Simulated assay, not measured.
Amino acid sequence: MRIAISAVGKLKDAEERAIVERYAKRLNGAGKPLGLGPIDIREYPESRAADVGERKRDEAERLLRDVGPGDIAVALEPTGKSLSSEAFAAFLRDTRDGGAKSCVFLIGGPDGHGEAALSACSLKLSLGALTLPHGLARVVLAEQLYRAATILSGHPYHRA
């Protein structure tokens, strides 16, 4: 099952980009024997619409272009479900075993997700109660995707 992170906003910080790329590379290696990956990271510019509702609609429309038939979409959402690393790994395993072609993680812009994006997602996932900048959310998500692969493979990276 392919994995994609589709995000509104470009990572401008070289250090954040390097960390995301490091975990993506690790996931590609660890996930291959498990049928997870490769990972594809896509960035979209923030909408320039003057109205918040229009910005959210525009960004949702662009993010949803990455979700095709047979794909599972997951919205990163502050009010979403909080999962342990083990439960997140089980979600990925079950999604893969359920026949999903891809699992696409959507990260909205500063105003959040548009209703179209939220309604298209089978899971609204919270990375925690703290508000994270978008770049840091990508770092946390990339690390958790790699961690999930190590949990599923029995690798000692995850020691909880």
Results as ranks from 00 to 15, higher is better:
D51I: 01
P38V: 05
G35R: 07
R22E: 10
R17S: 07
K32H: 13
G53M: 09
L36I: 04
P38C: 02
Y23V: 00
E16S: 11
R55H: 11
E54V: 11
Y23P: 00
R17I: 01
E43Q: 08
I41S: 07
E43S: 01
L36Q: 08
A18F: 02
P45I: 05
L34V: 06
L27F: 12
A18T: 00
D40C: 13
K56N: 09
G37S: 07
A24H: 05
R48F: 12
P38A: 00
E43A: 04
E15F: 04
P45C: 12
I41W: 10
L36D: 01
I41Q: 12
A24R: 03
L36S: 06
N28W: 08
A30P: 15
E15C: 09
L36T: 05
G31L: 05
P45Y: 05
K32R: 09
R17G: 13
A50W: 14
V52P: 00
V52C: 04
A30Q: 15
K56L: 02
P33D: 07
A18G: 02
R22L: 15
L27Y: 05
L27A: 01
R17P: 05
D51M: 03
N28S: 15
L34G: 09
I39Q: 07
P38Q: 01
P38Y: 02
R48W: 12
D51W: 04
S47V: 02
L34P: 10
P33L: 06
L34E: 07
V20T: 00
N28G: 09
A18C: 00
D40N: 14
L34Q: 10
P45E: 10
D51L: 02
E16G: 13
D51P: 00
K25H: 11
R22I: 14
K56D: 13
P45G: 07
E21P: 00
Y44L: 10
R48N: 14
N28K: 04
Y23N: 02
R42Q: 09
L34F: 02
R42F: 03
I19G: 11
Y23F: 04
R42V: 13
R42H: 07
N28P: 09
G37L: 03
E15Q: 08
K32V: 04
D51S: 06
V52D: 06
N28F: 08
E43K: 04
